[in-house]
Each structure stands twice: as C-alpha cells, then as structure tokens.
Amino acid sequence: MNVFRLAGDMSHLLAIIILLLKIWKTRSCAGISGRSQLLFALTYTARYLDLVTNWVSLYNTVMKVFFIATSYATIYLMYLKFKATYDSNHDTFRVEFLLLPVTILALVLNHEFSFMEILWTFSIYLEAVAILPQLFMVSKTGEAESITSHYLFALGSYRLLYIFNWIWRYYTEEYYDLIAIIAGVVQTVLYCDFFYLYFTKVLKGKKLQLPA
C-alpha cells in the first residue's frame, strides 16, 4: 500500500458517498446515469468475486464489500425507490457498444485464460469506459448539478491517483500490470474535458455547462 493508492481508494469511497448522499438528500437521481451505475455494479461484481476465494487484507475485503454493497444500493435507489426521478430520456447511451468490445477484449487480451482472470480483465476494461453513459448524459442535458460534478471529480481522481500508485510501485517494487495501467490511463483520459470544465467553471462557483 502507498499514499497514492490509499488516496485513490479514499477518493473512490468519497465519490460513492457523495452520490449516495445526493440521491438520498435530494430524494432524486436527476442528472445521474443509471446505465453507468449498472456498469459499475457489473464491474465490481466481476472483479470482487475473489472475495470468497483469496484473502488479501482486512482493508481489501472491507472495501470490496463496501463497493459492491453501495453500487447495488445506488441501483436500488435509482431504479426502484426514486424511479420517478430517473431521467431515462437523457440516459440513452448504447451500453451494448461497450459490453461487447470489452468482453471480446477480455477474452483475447488477458494475463491468463482462466475464469477468474478473464472476469478480472473484463472488469478492468469495463471500468475504463463505464463512465461514458454518464458523461454522455451530461453532454446531452448540457449541464450538471454541482454535487454531480463533485461526484465525477472524485471518481475521475481515483484512477488518476492509481496511475501515480502504479508509477510508484514500478520504481519501488518493480511491479506493473500493463492491463490495469493502460485501462486506467484510458479511463482517466475520458475525464480530461470534464476536469477542464470542473477547474474552470465549477470551482469558480459556476454551474457545469457544456456547450450543447
């Protein structure tokens, strides 16, 4: 464990808590993409099945349980409890265009052709693109609430911090995992224009407005 990975996990944790608070406090999931949340739940389910097979640490287990539990809780809130506030008209990104290539890539490009390893690889590739429906929805609605912007900033920062973690681990432990690194870079690059808008607008108190 290093400071970058811990900061990344905390940023990820913060993002999920911000999202849950936003939905719970405002009793609305307006502006949030349910499709992205479904992809995240699928990502963590596929990646954390090893919860039952191999023990890494208490921290690792607690965080995995938390990420799985909160991803399903978010889906429950969006598709059941506050279903009436779910903006399905703007949440229209074709997720099959993500799932198919990611599945094929996981079958072709992996460290080992085993069930668990392919699930892990699938989850790494899927996580890289899982935010696309959300970013697409923000571009379609042309704006996002500030709280949603903070959620996206924390979520985007998590994998950016992981990149620093991988650099750190490469130089200190000579450890690297190209699949995780390349997917993590792609994932972070997808946030770039959002990060730009976040720093130039949201942090100056303006609403996140995208040029429609």
Binding site: N54, H111, E174, D177
Partner: peptide, 10 residues
C-alpha cells in the same frame, strides 16, 4: 516481475 494473477489492488 510482471503482476501475478492474484490481484492485490481494488
């Protein structure tokens, strides 16, 4: 060494 298949990261 390249990553073993036991993934210790979240």
């Amino acid at each position: 060494p390249e990553a073993s298949n036991s993934h210790d990261e979240l």
